[in-house]
């Protein structure tokens, strides 16, 4: 009996090492320029699109990249660990989308003193260290969403926001960009509630429903990221208020583009996730070669609705 158990244990460990061996393809070895890309996540479709952009650039410039990020946008500590590990591998450059740029500062300084160029992406890093930053101006993008909202609801009425997070940079920028634009330009529009659903579709659905119950006269709803926007769409569908409430979303994903096509969602802001990923690696390559790089690479944002969703300008920016 005892011996049998030891055998089982041994077999399990053996198979585990085999699996590990098969999984790790080795970080170095082929002598290529190595650029770790540390993002804010990897599970969401948005980050997968950023990743595909980064891979596109890696292929084009023949460099090796790794792409990793923490599970949620609040795991600042995990991201710092990833940055630390990446630095320890002595890369040629690093592309980094800081969850909390102040927390990362000591490591970024270490990178600088080791002459490893740092490229920021997705959101800015509050420091001079990054050679360049490839990002969407989220404040401006959310302000455009506010303008569109005002246009749809006729300049007056109650609106509410479902935001993914109240501590992350994108959460703050999109919330404030929308809020400040409404408050300064549209005095007759009242923001009656702002709630946070962590980007979780189920939670966002339930909380959007509660907001609609609390404010029966609600005319407009802004969902500040994919999960939040889909939650709002679900809530409006479940309460059968299609057509009565103007929904404006952010980013894409199949459910959101479907909602835009069917008219449930008036439209949404899309960033250029593939462009963000592409430029983060391209700028890194340029920095390694010593070429001049723009300090701020604005990857842009666009409004899309059912009229232009299939246009040549918008279609490549949307992901399923």
């Amino acid at each position: 009996m005892k011996r049998k158990q030891w055998f089982i244990l041994l077999a399990m460990m053996l198979s585990l090492t085999t699996v590990l061996g098969a999984c790790s393809s080795g970080d170095k070895g082929d002598g290529k320029t190595y650029i770790p890309v540390i993002s804010k996540g990897f599970q969401h479709q948005f980050w997968q699109a950023v990743k595909s952009g980064a891979e596109k650039a890696a292929k084009e410039f023949d460099v090796k990249i790794t792409f990793e990020g923490p599970e949620t946008e609040s795991q600042v500590d995990k991201q710092i660990e990833m940055l630390q590990t990446a630095l320890d591998k002595k890369p040629s450059a690093i592309a980094f989308a800081a969850l909390d740029s102040k927390a990362a500062l000591p490591l970024l300084e270490k990178a600088k003193s080791n002459n490893i160029p740092v490229i920021g992406f997705d959101s800015g890093v509050d420091s001079d260290i990054p050679v360049a930053t490839a990002a969407t101006d989220n404040v401006k993008a959310a302000a455009l969403a506010a303008d569109k909202m005002a246009e749809f609801i006729g300049g007056s009425g109650e609106v509410a926001l479902v935001v993914h997070d109240q501590t992350s940079r994108t959460g703050i920028d999109r919330r404030d960009g929308f809020k400040n634009q409404i408050e300064s330009k549209y005095p007759n529009i009242k923001i009656v509630d702002i709630q946070y659903g962590g980007g979780d579709q189920l939670k966002s659905t339930d909380l959007a429903k509660a907001i609609m119950q609390a404010h029966p006269n609600l005319k407009g709803f802004f969902g500040a990221n994919e999960g939040s926007a889909i939650g709002v769409v679900n809530a409006v569908n479940e309460l059968k208020k299609n057509g009565q409430i103007t929904i404006i979303g952010y980013d894409s994903g199949k459910q959101q583009t479907d909602a835009v096509r069917s008219g449930t969602m008036a439209g949404a802001i899309t960033q250029d996730p593939i462009g963000i990923g592409y430029w983060s690696v391209k700028a890194a390559v340029m920095a390694i070669k010593g070429e001049a790089v723009d300090k701020n690479i604005d990857t842009g944002f666009h409004w899309y609705d059912k009229n232009n969703i299939d246009s040549d300008e918008i279609k490549p920016l949307l992901y399923d």
């Binding site: 339930d206 429903k209 119950q213 609390a214 404010h215 479940e238 309460l239």
Partner: peptide, 20 residues
């Protein structure tokens, strides 16, 4: 506290959010 709480739609909403 709120006239919008004890409403059929909202009570159904509460039950639905309890289900999972």
């Amino acid at each position: 506290s709120s006239s919008n709480f004890f409403v059929f739609d909202n009570l159904v909403g509460i039950m639905l959010s309890t289900a999972v």
